[in-house]
């Protein structure tokens, strides 16, 4: 069950710098650990995170095995116009999760 928490201000003044915070539920198994029987636990991580605003990409991050479970990413952008943020997480084993949030710019 993929659950995401996204925090985008609902309203902002035009030109204001806003912070966007995202938290994604994921085990982020690095692939370096072994079970008690000595078998390698296969890697299972999120490899890519993308944020688009009204279709245009505004932020992207590549994720690697050293990143903790349930990755928390926060970044800043400038509120230019009203619209919709779309978030996408892509990972191993066909993992895909999306979320979206709308903002009104006055």
């Amino acid at each position: 069950m993929a659950a995401a928490l996204v925090n985008v201000p609902a309203k902002a003044r035009r030109g204001a710098v806003i912070e966007i915070k995202t938290l994604m539920s994921h085990v982020m198994e690095p692939g370096y650990r072994h079970t008690a029987a000595g078998e390698v636990v296969p890697r299972d991580i999120i490899t890519s995170f993308t944020c688009r605003f009204n279709g245009a990409e505004i932020f992207r991050a590549d994720l690697y095995p050293a990143i903790a479970a349930n990755p928390f990413l926060s970044f800043f952008t400038t509120a230019s116009e009203s619209g919709k943020f779309e978030f996408e997480w892509i990972g191993d084993n066909g993992f895909v999760a999306t979320a979206s949030a709308a903002i009104t710019v006055e």
């Binding site: 996204v6 938290l23 539920s25 349930n70």
Partner: peptide, 9 residues
């Protein structure tokens, strides 16, 4: 911060 607290997931 409920949007940063991983327990909220």
């Amino acid at each position: 911060d409920d949007t940063a607290n991983p327990a909220m997931l």
